[in-house]
Design a protein around this nucleic acid. Structure first.
Ligand SMILES: [Mn+2]
Ligand SMILES: [Mn+2]
Ligand SMILES: [Zn+2]
Ligand SMILES: [Zn+2]
Lengths: 146, 146
DNA sequence: ATTTAGATTAGAATGATTCTAATATTAGAA
DNA sequence: TTCTAATATTAGAATCATTCTAATCTAAAT
């Protein structure tokens, strides 16, 4: 809380109640929220908050490398406050996203003709699968209601 | 051409001139086009073609596993007629996408606690980098005009 | 307390994608 | 070939995520 605020103030990031609420929501959050998830949550405490503020703040944080955008979902961007290099697995049924902390960089060597054409700067592995809960639902039967 | 058409007819995929144009455009295409790229190209021969047809056809092909959707671009979906398992590298400056045919699956082992929670079905590596052309532009100076 | 750079806001604009409902075509049957 | 049913096409509207605009407000430095 206080440390969090101090950290951003030091970096010259102007703090407002809305921004603090967003930072608090993101701090330690492992749910990989999309912009709308953040908006809904902040709105509880700041009913007048606007979508623009959420997007502006996310952009500012992204530009300062304080959050990462992840491209695992075909529909929308998700945000990740955990900047440690890691990968993700997403449930193709319910879109639940989990972290995969595993360093594959040794193995992810590019073929020479690609190295020749691109100067690689980053890599990210997307795993797809079905989570436990969705496995059960599929097995147990199709629908919950007739 | 003929084999291509025969292949789809056999599979009960109803063929229309527009669909054939889309299939031809995709066949052997390594450019990873987005829907709009396909639309623009088909429009040359079928000026009345609609966006809906392009999207409908892409959906039908995707459902039949005849094209893959790729999530490497934050802005939009790209389509890939090459179904062999492979990965991609995208230029963060110009969005050029290239194929990376390299099998990393041996190395991409998931941690046990993830295996416990997810039944993994697929994986895809996104590499990010800067292509040769964009490297030159950056080095040579900032802008082409004053 | 004053000042100003930067943040907030509602709402409009944009861009990608999906939906709708009327019309037209394909492909198989007669 | 002609008929028919199933399916595809179309323009345009609708939706959803995201960005932009321009007026107003506020953090935080002086
Ligand atoms: Mn993560
Ligand atoms: Mn490819
Ligand atoms: Zn799930
Ligand atoms: Zn480039």
């Amino acid at each position: 809380m206080k440390e969090l605020i101090a950290k951003y103030r030091e970096k010259g990031f102007k703090l407002t109640p809305q921004r603090i609420a967003i930072l608090k929501f993101l701090d330690g959050n492992t749910s990989h929220p999309a912009a709308n998830d953040i908006y809904r949550n902040i709105k509880k405490d700041y009913p007048t908050v606007s979508f623009a503020t959420v997007y502006n703040t996310l952009q500012a944080l992204r530009d300062r490398r304080e959050v990462a955008e992840i491209t695992i979902d075909f529909q929308k961007k998700h945000y990740d406050p955990d900047l440690r290099p890691h990968h993700h697995i997403i449930c193709t049924e319910c879109n639940k996203i989990a972290d995969v902390f595993q360093d594959y960089s040794e193995a992810l060597r590019l073929p020479y003709h690609i190295k020749d054409e691109f100067q690689a700067t980053a890599n990210h592995v997307n795993f797809y699968g079905i989570c436990k809960k969705c496995q059960k639902i599929k097995k147990g039967g199709t629908k919950l209601c007739a």
